[in-house]
Design a protein around this nucleic acid. Structure first.
Lengths: 353, 353
DNA sequence: TGGCCATGCTAACCCGATTTAGCACCCCGC
DNA sequence: GCGGGGTGCTAAATCGGGTTAGCATGGCCA
């Protein structure tokens, strides 16, 4: 174990040049600094033969950069979706030679501070503050010295140089309502929020914005929701409960907008248990695009959270900030809203009768 | 942006001592090296006041370590489960002051090599090679210089110093069969593999071992499976199909072992569509403990893959290897099998009639 | 008065790269 | 034969810490 790595000095020695020369050649500045073609050739061959790889830690010390970003999330284990966000960030980072440090805070601001510090101690070139749960948040200190991006959350006090990347929930809410209206529905029930604009779970921007979009489009059509069901949590059991209530009060034949796919799953269960079927008796449209949505029978029509794109975009913003650091001004604190693509499956049909 | 960080030299200057002294004091070797209590006090106060934090990149250069591990996975976005594995690794690492670099290979050996190299270039103190898909694998080169662990996969050519961490699938298979036998079942159908010991999907150790465990216990009871259904993939649609076949050939009243929870989901759908119910008409037991298992009605009884523990254990093995590096011998290439805990929900009952 | 020891600290080198400043050599022209 | 300029390379500083070897000072004892 631990046979020593080949260093630049080894390459230089074996090529009969100074390490300065070796460095210049290998960084492509050989011609510029007038190193003879013969010497360049030799250095490159020796480097290749010895399997030389530069020590990035050393470069990091010299340049104050580490070719790494920090990705700090409140949770990474809730769902596949978090994984997709990381995947997007990872691929964008790797494509530019950057690595990603991952950290999980579980929503604890103290843990977050510790992680951000640990990453700054490792000279990361940027930090992504991601959220899966919480949708509005405070920012930790220490982010003045390094590019940062807030991902899938809105900062309570917007920071001058920290851009934000979020899904366009408002637009998706509008699209959901439009889609049901176009299918001919007039009786539209909401499960997870509503019926009023203030009936939204606390601390989730997603709920508030989806609801606002839905209500706006319904209002344009001269409608209000047939009913609204605020749930303690967006889990199948509550979707089941709310849907039973809808059916018992004669809502069958209409449509349901569930505020996420787990609620929709509960809705399917209630509809099937009542001897009804989707979409013949009830149409359902939802948000998130959990893997589940594709497994249900019929498949669930839903607006996907663009997790992969969110992750990618956040890294790209860091890269832009780095590129701009030297000359241009820093990132403006723009809120980037990424579209939520519709996954059309089989859960929406015309109203019954 | 980028006001300079406080360095050790800054602290030394402000305390009126040399940086050597400051270093000794802050690393706790002050008393040992006979620095006066007054000087120590001063250094500590100044350090605190200036908010000094040591630059880990610098320490890494000197010591050849980076207080970071690499976590290279074939995929991190398949499911929540991958996230749990990372979470376990993350928590164990953070508890010991280590960070985690994450990488995703998508099963491509070339990408894996690149990632492993990129991590070695950053002087990681250990590497975890994790799998979600593939269950047997080759090892990349370059792992002779640094502690490594294989996670959730079996190496094709066991390496002398690389331990392996996997779930104990064989034991879980046995326990599943035992549980159904104890509930009184004699007619046991397999969905996902079987009926013979060779009827297993290629390249999955999980399938082979679960099956072996099941067959062993059934054989001890003088039984063979009532039927076996090898599926192209372990997805709901195939579970649905196989279960329909079981019901059509008069299997209702018996029990099903599905080889994972997604197959079980399909089985539930088929059973409900046939107007039957779980567990009155059919008992189901499964493996994985997807979140789904808890959402089904009734809840699915299943053996959980101990993802969190797997992640934790792999980091602990790296820490042990580091601790042993100086004196003791390297890690032996032991295969660590972690138990798969049973999640008892409502899907298993006595046979009908 | 000189030697010895304890006390309290620091100079200087090291890790592995990048980068600045500059040196030695040769050729050419006057 | 001496200055000027181009060519080809290198010494040395630097990043921010850790570490080794050793240097002043003062007190005590013979």
């Amino acid at each position: 174990m631990a046979r020593k790595r080949v260093t630049l000095a080894d390459v230089a020695l074996a090529s009969g040049v100074s390490s300065t020369t070796a460095s210049l050649v290998l960084s492509g500045r050989g011609a510029e600094l007038r190193i003879s073609e013969a010497a360049q050739q030799r250095v490159r061959e020796v480097s290749e033969a010895l399997g030389y790889r530069p020590n990035i830690v050393s470069i990091g010390l010299r340049k104050g950069s580490s070719l790494a970003f920090g990705f700090v999330s409140d949770t990474i284990a809730t769902s596949q979706l978090a994984g997709d966000m990381i995947k997007g960030a990872l691929e964008a980072a790797h494509a530019h030679g950057f690595m990603l440090f991952i950290g999980e805070t579980e929503g604890d601001a103290k843990v977050e501070r510790r992680l951000v510090n640990a990453m700054l101690d490792r000279q990361v070139d940027g930090i992504i503050l991601a959220s899966m749960f919480t949708q509005t948040r405070r920012l930790p200190s220490g982010l003045d010295h390094v590019p940062a991006v807030v991902l899938n959350a809105l900062p309570l006090e917007p920071h001058l140089h920290i851009p934000v990347v979020v899904p366009d929930e408002l637009e998706a809410g509008k699209a959901a309502a439009r889609l049901l209206l176009e299918a001919g529905h007039r009786s539209i029930h909401l499960v997870g929020a509503g019926p009023g604009p203030a009936d939204t779970p606390p601390a989730t921007v997603a709920g508030r914005e989806r609801l606002a979009g839905i209500l706006e489009v319904l209002a344009e059509a001269g409608l209000t929701p047939a009913s609204g069901h605020l749930c303690p949590d967006w889990l199948p059991a509550y979707g089941w409960e709310a849907t039973r209530a809808i059916i018992e009060s004669g809502g069958a034949g209409g449509a349901i907008i569930t505020f996420n796919d787990r609620l929709a799953f509960g809705a399917y269960q209630a509809i099937h248990e009542a001897g009804l079927s989707v979409p013949a008796d009830m149409s359902i449209i939802s948000f998130d695009d959990y893997p589940l949505a594709d497994w249900l029978r019929p498949g669930l029509t839903t607006f996907a959270i663009p997790h992969y794109d969110l992750g990618r975009r956040s890294v790209e913003l860091l890269l832009e900030a780095i590129a701009a650091r030297d000359d241009g001004p820093a990132n403006p604190a723009i809120v980037h809203r990424l579209p939520m693509p519709l996954r059309t499956r089989g859960s929406v049909g015309p109203p019954r009768g």
